[in-house]
């Protein structure tokens, strides 16, 4: 067997470093696109979840325009299909493993829809990269939706009541009162999700995305070393994630310091 890690093995990796740098670029691109897709999806999902869309409201109305006493009819009248769909989506995505979701998207969805095969930036294979960001984006959209929903719901009910009592509509209340306060609360959580995605994106090497992990695999089969390329990957992931989370923590501190000053 011999030693697990040999210093001279690192010199074997030398010629393959280009794969690692390209893998790093892919990982960063993958994460940025994933966050963008996830963020937009989350806004749509959160809006659906918190919407007051009641298409069956007429069922619960009596002829003179009042609410009926019948509890079943009231329940139907209250049913919000948009909120139901969004909730179902979020719960399914959160209750299944990412790898299953990625395989379903890659082999299932994009097995039926064929993507154009081309390479961009010289080393990113579109037909593998695209399913990767779709799958990760769909997954992270579910989590980001929950972050946004809890951010909006964490704002004291009294704020809504005060705004509505002044005659502002529910939309105006959301726009002027709730969202400005909620966004400040959830920014750190959204930034944290970005760090999570950088790490989670490693799983896309299973569908052939040439990220950092796929570089590890290539080096492994070319040089018959495993620990050394893994350590290189560890170092790269750490250098991506650690500064990012430190930056987030710094911004978070800055923001809460502002709060304390106001409290004087």
């Amino acid at each position: 067997m011999g030693d697990l890690i040999k210093l001279e093995n690192f010199s074997k990796i030398g010629p393959f470093m280009k794969l690692f740098w390209q893998g790093t670029a892919v990982t960063v691109l993958l994460s940025l696109f994933t966050v963008a897709i996830g963020f937009i999806l989350a806004i749509v999902l959160a809006t659906m979840r918190l919407s007051e869309f009641r298409p069956f409201a007429f069922v619960g109305m009596t002829k003179d325009g009042k609410l009926t006493d019948n509890p079943t009819l009231r329940a139907i009248a209250k049913f919000n299909p948009l909120s139901f769909l969004a909730t179902a989506y979020v719960e399914i995505l959160r209750s299944t493993p990412v790898i299953v979701q990625i395989f379903i998207i890659y082999y299932g969805v994009f097995g039926v829809i064929s993507l154009p095969k081309f390479t961009f930036l010289g080393f990113v294979k579109f037909e593998r990269f695209f399913p990767g960001i779709v799958a990760l984006g769909m997954n992270s959209g579910a989590y980001l939706c929950e972050i946004m929903r809890s951010g909006i719901q964490s704002i004291d009910r009294g704020q809504t009541e005060a705004a509505r009592s002044l005659g502002l509509s529910s939309f105006q209340t959301l726009r002027f009162i709730i969202l400005p306060q909620a966004i400040k609360n959830i920014l750190p959580a959204i930034a944290n999700e970005f760090v999570v995605i950088i790490k989670e994106s490693a799983i896309t090497y299973t569908i052939g995305v040439q990220d950092i992990m796929s570089a590890v695999n290539s080096v492994k089969s070319a040089t018959f070393t495993i620990m050394e390329p893994l350590l290189v990957a560890t170092a790269i992931y750490f250098c991506l994630c650690f500064p990012t989370s430190k930056l987030i923590a710094y911004i978070e501190r800055r923001m809460s310091r502002g709060d304390r000053r106001h409290n004087d």
């Binding site: 009541e161 005060a162 509505r164 009592s165 002044l166 005659g167 502002l168 509509s169």
Partner: peptide, 9 residues
């Protein structure tokens, strides 16, 4: 909303 405008709270 119109009615609430006329009722301060």
């Amino acid at each position: 909303d119109k009615h609430r405008q006329k009722m301060g709270m």
